[in-house]
Nucleic acid binder design. Structure first.
Lengths: 150, 150
DNA sequence: CTAATATCAGCCTGACTGACATTG
DNA sequence: CCAATGTCAGTCTGGCTGATATTA
């Protein structure tokens, strides 16, 4: 966004907490996106691979629920991961509507690379904060997000 | 996003600080967007009106720098505000490349409505936090954003 | 000749809506 | 008949890129 570096009095919208939160979110999102892009992946890929690694093979509908990715967006993301040989899509013999998605050895290796990359991204993102401040921030954000679901 | 309400073990990506920050940003952004939409406005409109109110008439290039809105996106936003009678676009006689954008009385009234609406949005967004926690959060986010510009 | 200004067309991720055919 | 599943086409905000014409 690059707000004017010049000596302009900052506009009033920039002091709103909602602005700070949105900007911090944009910043975090950008760091993550750039980090993943450097490894040839994007957010949806990491979310899907980590869900598969955490909870095992699943249908696309299950994956959507666990990763928070819309069914309509899953198709493309799954195709991309399958193209890279990171996952395997096979029909469920017990229910012919379903595809069973399985992570491959290749996918697990890729996931480990992404995990490491994201660890470094967290470090860069939080570098201005002490360990105590990092915990505090996570606590406050979790409180706000907990309130969100009404 | 509606992460599964069911009893699934949360995937590991959800514990990343970058995830918490992005989600909190998305949440804040959604509340603001919905609040402004209820008044027939969107984020760019509020940012432009508040900049005009804070710093007075300006060319589009100046507005872009002060509001952090891209020149290429400004044109449409300015058109929309002019259609509503909130601002006035007039050529600068001293520099014929420039348009001078001025906020109208109507625009000032609209801005006051949006200001009030956003105040209520902050209240809802921060409602799970005490006054001290709100200050703390603003401080931590400001620290992170200060680091961002390298 | 270079720089600033305004405009237009298009791209991107992530989130979402709606329609549809297949299967349980 | 109804519900779940997978697929496809399209929308939206905010943030971008790049091209172009005009004027300083």
């Amino acid at each position: 966004m690059s707000l004017s570096a010049s000596g302009d009095n900052p506009a009033r919208f920039m002091s709103l907490p909602s602005w700070l939160m949105t900007q911090a979110g944009v910043h975090a999102h950008r760091l993550v996106t750039e980090g993943l892009a450097a490894e040839g992946a994007r957010g949806y890929h990491y979310r899907l691979l980590s869900v598969l690694d955490d909870s095992g093979p699943a249908s696309q509908a299950q994956l959507g629920r666990r990763s928070g990715i819309h069914l309509s967006d899953l198709v493309a993301a799954i195709n991309e991961l399958a193209d890279r040989g990171f996952i395997h899509r096979s029909p469920d013999p017990a229910d012919r509507r379903r595809n069973i998605i399985t992570i491959t050895g290749n996918g697990r290796r890729g996931l480990r690379r992404l995990d490491k990359k994201l660890l470094r991204v967290q470090e860069e993102l939080l570098s201005p904060l002490s360990a105590g401040e990092r915990d505090q921030l996570a606590r406050l954000l979790t409180q706000i997000l907990g309130h969100q679901g009404r």
